[in-house]
Amino acid sequence: MISIRDLSKDFDGIKALAGVTLSVGKGETFGLIGPNGAGKTTLIRILTGQTVPSGGDILLDGETVDPLEARYRLRIGLVPQEPAFYGRLTAHENLTLLAGLYGIDKGQITARVADLLSWVGLEEHTARQVRFFSRGMQQRLSLAMGLVHHPDLIYMDEPTSGLDPEARLSLWDLILRLAEEGRSIFLTTHNMEEADRICDRLAILIGGTLREEGTPQRIKGLLGTDRVEAMLLEDRSAVLEALCGRLGLSWKSEGDKVVISGPELADKLPEIASSLMGSVRNLHYREVTLEDAFLRFMREVKR
């Protein structure tokens, strides 16, 4: 649906983005992860017309567009990192104003606003000024405001940043429902669990450069595997050598523990446990997470 080709941005000689190329398909949820200062917000700002890029193109359905053009603007929605609304207006008033500015037919505004409020679970709080909402409610309203005009593509800049776990789960649920409706979603996040659970595809942005791109599974596979960590009571090197050779695994010592890793480790866990029985103090199976993968990737980049 949208493609970015060789997008770059310089701020007074500092490269915030250096030739970023990526695309988001129709109905796809695309996540951009990266450390602070990687250029994620700059990219979102360029894609929403708030910042002019130094170079590169943005293509909508294969055609180059200016983010300020109406044919692009009116097809995108935005959920900024900080909730954006008029605090002294009610949720209903905020949505009604925005619906009007998007040119939604007056007769349809009331129904559209009611639908959205119900969809984000704020139908019982329509008359309260938004500044009195909890952060989670505010972010749900922010999401509703980004959807008021039925956009095809929704940009979300760290949408769950600063939310408590319950509010985060509630927002994830809403984002997944959007994805089910076939909307394209482009989100940036620091939260690897969020990226793993929500996104169909991920890209890692570091120092303004796109380092990796693929499904969460691929990213995790690239940068790490599941492992078994065991604290042994005695030296069982010979047993470990034989076991790993037989199962196609590898092992190594890390301080006072041994670490076994390799493909399909979960299936081989019972055999590992029985082989080490009697000489093991404790044994942990650790599934690799996107966060592990990301941290390992960051360490490698720094090296």
Partner: peptide, 13 residues
């Protein structure tokens, strides 16, 4: 301050 300038900029205004 309300963060609305960006949102308004995306509308048909």
């Amino acid at each position: 301050e309300e963060g609305m300038r960006i949102r308004l900029g995306l509308t048909e205004m």
